[in-house]
Design a protein around this nucleic acid. Structure first.
Lengths: 243, 243
DNA sequence: CGATCTCGCTGGTCTGACCAGTTGACCAGT
DNA sequence: ACTGGTCAACTGGTCAGACCAGCGAGATCG
């Protein structure tokens, strides 16, 4: 593996991660109070502003509720957290959570075809050429483990363009959140997704449908791109889930 | 209007909102640097910690990138922000953004049926009774402007239960984000959505399909619930959009 | 002219202080 | 027995000022 960027963790980052883990793992049940800022600062051996910064970020994410004068309460993150929390949920304690991974695949399959249909309706003249170029790049990748990763990157780029063309801000933001969860684990997942991004012809059909401005065909084509890997991976993940 | 809770805005809240507006409105284009923390603190007449807290929250949301030693850069929020930003985008300068509202409707229509299908597959024994109870509550609401609001609340509760039953964390978080955007504007939108939540029979059919564990029927029923209002509202919104 | 150094600016962190809101206990009226 | 008032001991909110650490541009030196 080539040289990696140095991870620089600030003090508030560290505090944020620790408190987040406590909350997400359910060590502190929803409704309970967090220790006071001063107490946390002392326990963690950092200054109060550092703790404050972390707690404010927690509040921003909807995981706690701070009340001036009162205690800081833990909220039920499954009810109040937004999609931004996804990356933190996907990888817990350094490994993938199969239930979360399954859920991401389900969401992808539900949303992708609709986005493709919208892109077909709204895509401008230049869209077809841009998509074709990306598919060409996808097809030109050499085989091998490194190639799998590279194909993933091109596939992400492809969907990025489709989402842009759909011109619907909610899908755009959803895509950003999903990508933020997916990208850090890309290397690990690339082999599993290799079959999907290898279907150059399926991508080509989808591109053609979108370029032609045919939403129904685009929807079906997107589903043909996404469904095979989705279903096979979900069955594979089902064996990993404890339940 | 009955008594409202007092809104208490903290200093960092205020700073956050102001900087957010600058970024989202494009006053400071993506790639440009924000003024330094000290400069912002002086201009806004607050302390540096207050500014820091606001900027850290901006970074958490993906709108800026702070670099130790260097300037704080504005990022392209359309590419890096997550779905949590949605409430801030939906209502800008005190009024609804039609393009964002349209997009929310599109997303709802795309996701709702899939969620219903999953709920049909995975819903437990108690689900049917719970959904029926909510539909009954929906049907029991008196007419009138206040009733429209009340029906919205019940409809949200209904979908909340469906999303829970789907048992897919991504949809859960999506729903939370969408609800967070929708709820503050609920009173204003209730009249527009009145037709949808008035279709008690459509909700009943959907409930029956989910209870029966029939995903395909549930998907179709959900679409019948959501599509009419979605399409009529989108055409209505199209007239408001400048474009 | 180009590589290097240095200084000034940036953000990162801490300390300690004080302000402001909440809570519960206690007390005084009704 | 219940209401509302008072107070003290929390809590979070905000500030000022200091110092550390990283970056970058301009001055400097070869």
């Amino acid at each position: 593996m080539p040289l990696q960027p140095v991870v620089r963790r600030s003090v508030p980052d560290e505090v944020f991660d620790q408190v987040l883990a406590e909350v997400v793992d359910g060590e502190i049940p929803a409704g309970d109070a967090l220790p006071s800022e001063r107490a946390l600062a002392e326990v963690l051996g950092v200054s109060r502003p550092a703790v404050r910064e972390a707690l404010q970020r927690m509040a921003q994410t909807g995981l706690v509720q701070v009340r001036h004068g009162g205690a800081t309460l833990v909220r039920d993150f499954k009810r109040y957290a937004g999609l931004d929390l996804l990356p933190r949920l996907l990888v817990r304690h350094g490994e993938l959570d199969p239930a979360v991974a399954r859920s991401i695949l389900e969401a992808r399959l539900a949303v992708g075809p609709s986005v493709a249909a919208l892109a077909a309706t709204r895509g401008g003249a230049a869209l077809g050429a841009a998509l074709s170029a990306t598919v060409d790049a996808l097809a030109a990748v050499d085989d091998g483990p490194q190639g799998d990763v590279e194909r993933q990157v091109h596939a992400l780029e492809f969907w990025d363009q489709v989402v842009d063309a759909a011109d619907s801000i909610v899908f755009r933001l959803m895509f950003n959140s999903l990508r933020a969860a997916y990208e850090p684990t890309l290397e690990a997942l690339a082999p599993l997704m290799a079959a999907e991004v290898g279907q150059i012809d399926a991508y080509a059909v989808l591109t053609a449908a979108i370029s032609a401005g045919d939403p129904d065909t685009a929807r079906a084509a997107a589903e043909r791109v996404l469904r095979p890997a989705t279903e096979s991976l979900i069955t594979a993940l089902a064996h990993l889930e404890p339940r």
